[in-house]
Design a protein around this nucleic acid. Sequence first.
DNA 1: TCTGGGGTCCTAGGACCC
DNA 2: TCTGGGGTCCTAGGACCC
Length: 435
Amino acid sequence: MSASRRIALVDANSFYCSCERVFRPDLDRGAAVVVLSNNDGCVVARSAEAKSLGIPMGQPWYMLRDEARRKRWPVVAFSSNYTLYGDMSARFMSVLAQFVAPQDVEQYSIDECFLDFTHHRVDLAATGRQIRDRVKQWTGLPVCVGYGATKTLAKLANHCAKKQPQWSGICDLTGLSNAELSAVLASVKVQDVWGIGRKLAESLIRGGITTAEQLRQADARRIRERFNVVVERTVAELQGIPCLAWETEPPAKQQIIASRSFGAPLYTLDELREPIHMHAGRAAEKLRAQGSVAGRVGVWIETNRFRAQDAQYSPTRSVRLPTATADSADIAAWASHVLKSIWRDGYRYVKAGVMLDELRPAGMAQGTLFDPAPAGLDSSRGELMELLDKVNDKWGRNAMGIGHAGVRAARSWDMQRGMMSPRYTTAWSELRAVE
DNA sequence: TCTGGGGTCCTAGGACCC
DNA sequence: TCTGGGGTCCTAGGACCC
């Protein structure tokens, strides 16, 4: 047995809302800030004030807007501004990187990061305070810090740091006696354990397991029999036995998806070709960015499942390509082909997507007997793709597209985002002015 | 009228092989 | 009347995460 690990999870509070607030200090006094999903669909982030009003995650904006008006709630909504959140995330992560060696950093999501302090003989409580202060001072973001012997325990500690005021934003479970740890775990509901979602929680509660502590005390073998190996691993992690790998480098994606709801419904095959071509181009761009080629292209279209009066039809289909490729035009052509095979007349389509599967490194793509040199990054079309990526990198996503992707001004299906904040940190023309 | 967009992993079951 | 045992691969679907 090696000595216990000391893993931190640092997590920004209400991340998207906090990003907006950094540049809108006028919203600090009592405003309930929410950030909406693409197309201004539903609530994906809520400030503490919004949470205390009882606004649930995922609530459709059009419902909340009416309710807020009726009840005179001080709700301020923003369309999601991923340019801003992505840049703020990068700044946040760069601050965290100062505290440990590079191999001890694992960015887990846009607003969460694991840091491994096992080989850093520092005082965890003091370091936690430094992290909070420095991130706050240098980025304006409020964060909480949790420490544990495994990732799952660090997540749980972070949950306590956020929800239980006595921790003052920093919860360290690494130095606790077994009895002390039991007491903390007993205060956490089983559904708040990382990896236990709604379905598993229901099932566990039926079986009498309602807290994290009861899950920790459960018999791992019985858990495996009754559920699966994933839950068994969660139990082990709660017991301090690490089962989740440390991933310094984000592994290459195995699947790439590009999809959007439309700003307005579409009906005809010709209309649907535009978003499908745009998604194909976007997915191919992500594919090239990770140096892969795709062996399978899938397409799906959807009607509005919330409208009972509408005929429903949401087909999906994929094709294996004769030769794996990362070429936007090839992928768009195949996607178009699949679209044609699944589209049916007479439906009101509200969403479409393109999925790339069977990804592998570009250099390893197999040619075929009749086409021994697959179209990859090294063909002449590869140069065109490089140029395409450079142009879009410089002038913005979709500045240059392929074939049927549509002229921006004429796209009825473009997403709605009427409440977007400026790109404060990435566009000179949108810098915050201080009067 | 308006309800997001990405991902991962695991399991079960069928087809197929020797 | 009796009808094996051990695999792999693929796909669909469900659960989870942010």
